[in-house]
């Protein structure tokens, strides 16, 4: 017979029992990575005013990260925006700009080509793009198998042996940086070249850029030149409204860039 007295007694005992694993977890759980001086948090800085659209970064990235060179996929790419005097925006990124921009023709693949007269151009610029390694990565949240994750240094990676190729992450990324690797058939993306960072080198695209349009830095180091630039200058991020807190900062970004 369950009396009120017994019911309360057992409920309390049960609640206490449930709380035990929670406290164990709380005491062994590690604190969030941000804040401590020794921990690194990689961030990227793109100065789009310096980019000339040579595409050396894309070439280097593909070679460095073994992304099939002739497949029409890339971990990083460069976009060209040409705004004409009638206010129209013409953008392209043929072959992810692997071979640079070597003609005035806007080449949008199967959407056709456009020839724009120099006299009609009101402004034009190049915008390098790569994974934003967001603070709140949407791609990681949607992975059903735990194959994509963020390291304590903020880098979002994909576990090729664990990825089932469902493509949720490719759909979830607001920046379109993910794709299927043509060889492994798993989700593929920029890694900030973590293997280079841990060896004390800069990412391949940063190394290859002749104009210093791409830079990498450690946000947790207040003396890092990139951190200083981000803190002291007018920087922008892409698609802030998604709340993903992207960690690729842009200098000189124009409103036409999506």
């Amino acid at each position: 017979m369950l009396t009120r007295r017994n019911f309360l007694k057992y409920s309390l005992a049960g609640a206490a029992g449930l709380a035990v694993p929670a406290t164990i977890k709380a005491s062994t759980g590690t604190a969030p990575a941000a804040g401590t001086a020794t921990d690194k948090r990689w961030v990227f800085l793109v100065d789009s005013t310096k980019c000339v659209g040579c595409g050396m970064c894309v070439k280097a990235c593909k070679n460095e990260n073994e992304v099939p060179y002739d497949a029409n996929v890339s971990r990083t790419w460069v976009e060209r925006y040409v705004v004409t005097k009638d206010g129209k925006v013409h953008a392209d990124s043929p072959k992810a700009a692997r071979d640079g921009f070597t003609t005035q023709t806007i080449d949008q693949g199967h959407h056709g080509k456009e020839i724009i007269k120099p006299a009609d151009i009101s402004k034009a610029f190049f915008v390098p793009k790569l994974c934003n390694h967001c603070e709140n990565p949407a791609c990681v949240q949607v992975c059903p198998v735990g194959a994509t994750y963020q390291t304590k240094e903020g880098v979002v990676l994909v576990d090729r042996t664990w990825c089932i190729g469902c493509g949720y992450c490719i759909m979830a990324c607001p920046y379109g940086v993910r794709f299927f690797h043509p060889v492994y058939h798993t989700a593929e993306k920029c890694t900030f070249c973590v293997h280079r960072l841990h060896a004390g080198l800069k990412p391949a695209c940063v190394e290859a850029c002749p104009f210093g349009a791409r830079q990498i830095g450690n946000r947790n180091d207040p003396n890092d030149p990139v951190t200083k630039t981000i803190l002291n200058n007018k920087v922008q991020v892409l698609k802030e409204e998604y709340g993903t807190k992207p960690q690729v900062y842009y200098l000189g970004l124009s409103m036409e860039v999506k």
Binding site: N63, N65, Y149, T151, R160, A208
Partner: peptide, 23 residues
């Protein structure tokens, strides 16, 4: 980074850290 952002196989971090440097 907790369950939402870093539920993963830790060994995979080594895979990426040991990727061959070309440049």
């Amino acid at each position: 980074r907790g369950y939402i952002y870093s539920w993963h196989r830790q060994g995979d971090e080594n895979f990426w850290n040991k990727f061959t440097i070309k440049y």
